[in-house]
């Protein structure tokens, strides 16, 4: 399995990274957000025709703003809308803005709260009735 390298970057560099990668022949593959009790970041993945990828990790926070890369790669639009709806991160300058109606979930910003893991209670062995 190939080792995974996530280049760290900051949100102000995102558009420049996207433009640089586009010139090198990469295209936008995907982006997603990860939120844990201790940190929150967005991962961008760019892909080339020979299947090699380059990934970047950008720290982010709920209610923070990140510049949108949809001006460089239109494909990023759906991913950014999804992250902004589920995590509450605002992307400035999105080419198509669904305004929070992409999924219309029952619970808004559902992924922004990170619950403590459910502790499984040990199953008590039932007493066998004679």
């Amino acid at each position: 399995m190939d080792p995974q390298v996530f280049f760290p970057a900051v949100k102000t560099e995102v558009v420049e990274i996207a433009q640089r990668n586009k010139a090198l022949g990469y295209r936008f593959a995907q982006m997603h957000c990860v939120k844990t009790p201790s940190e929150m970041f967005i991962i961008y993945t760019f892909e080339k025709q020979d299947l090699s990828i380059e990934q970047y990790r950008i720290p982010a926070e709920t209610d923070g703003a990140v510049p949108s890369v949809s001006g460089v790669f239109l494909a990023a639009v759906l991913y950014e809308n999804e992250i902004s709806e589920l995590y509450g991160v605002e992307f400035t300058g999105m080419a198509i803005d669904f305004g929070g109606t992409l999924y219309e979930t029952a619970k808004p910003r559902a992924f922004a709260e990170v619950a403590a893991p459910v502790k499984k209670t040990p199953v008590k062995q039932a007493a066998v009735a004679e």
């Binding site: 997603h32 990860v34 494909a75």
Partner: peptide, 26 residues
């Protein structure tokens, strides 16, 4: 694309699936 992140407990931090139709919608 499948992304998994674990934190050492038996519950994962995050599992993310980017499915092909999501990419084909645009």
């Amino acid at each position: 694309v499948y992304y998994g992140k674990g934190n050492g407990t038996k519950y994962l931090d995050r599992f993310r699936v980017r499915t092909p139709t999501f990419a084909n919608l645009i």
